[in-house]
Amino acid sequence: MICSKCGADSDKSVRFCTNCGNPLTQTVESQTDHETRIEQTEGNQNRIGYSERINDPAFASYRRQATAWSFIFAGILAVIVIVGFFIYGETSSEMDNPQALYIGLGIGGMFLTIALLATISRMRIKQWDGVVIDKKIEKKTRRNKDSNGQYYTERYTLYTIVFKTDRGKIINKFEEDDDTIFNYFEIGDQVRHHKGLGTLEKYDKSKDDIIFCNACSTLNDINDDKCYRCSCPLLNK
């Protein structure tokens, strides 16, 4: 099917141009098939479009809690390390305080720095709209080392989904030995990457029976109202 905006030729089964994301003009036959499918799935028409539920306060609360827990966890690790090195410096003949304490403070500070950088990284996540332009399945191998220091060959399957953003940037999403997300998206799907969350939402969810939570990425039933894990609203309405 030829795109009226950029002239690219896309598969007739897709509804958005795989080059620029522009909605494609359907033939009479495809429109009839689409109308029939909508009638057969009555109640799903409200699952076409990006959900306004992303503005629910629960998502902002989830982001704040995630930030708080990352610092709490890092703080606990930092205290354990600092106290451990201090005790080691007091009881060991190999290292004395304050040298041991300084090492503990350095490692503890590293944990807190990692938490800070992770928070800054989440805050810098930007929103973009795009389209799925390709999907790949690759059989790969890599060398790993076991607990005895011996190398062995590991075989795995790499699933790749390729997105093209509205600004023309190509983004690849990888998963190893898990085809759930790979099967969830199809070439031609229009998507939105949400700011501050780093999760993807489909524009057309009318044919789906599953949905990923846009807060914690947990897989849910499409008919559920909230994520069973974090209680954030699912973007299915």
Rank of each mutant, 00 (worst) to 15 (best):
C3E: 02
K5C: 04
D9L: 11
D11K: 02
T18E: 14
T18M: 07
C20G: 08
T27E: 02
S30L: 13
H34K: 03
E35F: 15
E35G: 04
T36M: 09
T36P: 04
E39I: 06
T41Q: 14
N46H: 08
I54G: 14
I54C: 13
A58K: 13
F59K: 01
S61N: 13
S61Y: 03
A66R: 09
W69C: 11
S70M: 15
G75H: 10
L77Q: 09
E90D: 06
T91F: 04
T91D: 13
Q99F: 07
A100P: 03
L101E: 09
Y102R: 12
L105N: 10
L116A: 03
T119G: 02
R122S: 11
K126L: 08
G130P: 04
I133P: 01
K139H: 05
R143Y: 04
S147Q: 15
G149F: 13
Y152L: 10
L158F: 08
T160L: 12
I161F: 01
R167H: 11
I171H: 06
K173A: 09
D179M: 03
D179H: 06
H193A: 04
L197F: 05
G198D: 05
E201C: 10
D208M: 01
I211T: 10
C216Y: 07
C232N: 11
C232R: 15
P233L: 07
N236Y: 04
